[in-house]
Design a protein around this nucleic acid. Sequence first.
DNA 1: CGATAGGGTTTCGTTATGAAACCGAATTGA
DNA 2: TCAATTCGGTTTCATAACGAAACCCTATCG
Lengths: 154, 154
Amino acid sequence: MARKRFDNANCSVARALNEVGDWWSLLVVLHAMYGTRRFVDFQRELGIARNILCDRLARLVEHGVLKKVDVGEHGSRHEYRLTDKGRDLFPVVMALRQWGDRWTPAQEHAPLDLRDRATGRPVRPMVVQDADGRDLSIRDVMLKDDESHTVGLD
Amino acid sequence: MARKRFDNANCSVARALNEVGDWWSLLVVLHAMYGTRRFVDFQRELGIARNILCDRLARLVEHGVLKKVDVGEHGSRHEYRLTDKGRDLFPVVMALRQWGDRWTPAQEHAPLDLRDRATGRPVRPMVVQDADGRDLSIRDVMLKDDESHTVGLD
DNA sequence: CGATAGGGTTTCGTTATGAAACCGAATTGA
DNA sequence: TCAATTCGGTTTCATAACGAAACCCTATCG
């Protein structure tokens, strides 16, 4: 049967994964954040099959994560640019990068040293915090309406 | 040909996606964070096919995201529990949830209202910040070693 | 002791993926 | 100017992944 999709899922994580949760979509978004805009550049940088790239770009455009912009003289060349929705995946990508840097077996290259352009200081690690900026673990978080339901256990 | 995998990728995002980047893995981790530990419970809650769930659980155990614990009297019943590595996906899941809540078409149920267990106050939105706690957009972030290379464009 | 639950594996049909070939329009370059 | 190359795809085909259901063996429950 068809791959299960989560369009109408009652869970925002499932719905998010429905749009960017496959093997390639988040990598396309990541490279778009790096500045890549053209079909051939995505293809070269990612090493993705052309038909799959077509499919992913179309799906991301359809979901409003990217927008397709004509840039050729006669409307023949296009660029794929991030929308606000796409740019708002920045925290997701940064959290994933951080996790990969921490937990993924050592690689030949060091992790990217990302810094604030203005101050030159490192980007702060992605953490879940309360309103005062104190770090929260899974067990610190609960649902408002049912205090007895712990959201996080281990 | 075989699905492309990113085990040795020179990119921590790609390596992270290699471990949790398919349709089901992050949902399994999410439900583990909710407290689910048993095979049948994952199966019921997620509506995932049993063979696929087997495969995902085994892969997550293999990657050290979950650990398989014998709990039956004679070692016949198991639980799948989050490891530290798995728990450290909390920021990823929270960032995805936030994005899904913001950008995914309206659903019948309101977004989960997650709160700090100690103070009862809402969990702060996931954002990328600098060392002082100021929000950073994609364009504010650069690589340390090459100031001319902008990490984020749109 | 029979029924049911837990945790899988097997089988089989459908869908997704990847490599490569192909294609037409637009651009480059000699 | 005319051939070569680039861009952005589509088509074809073999292989891999997915999903549903059936099956299986070991506990546990009543």
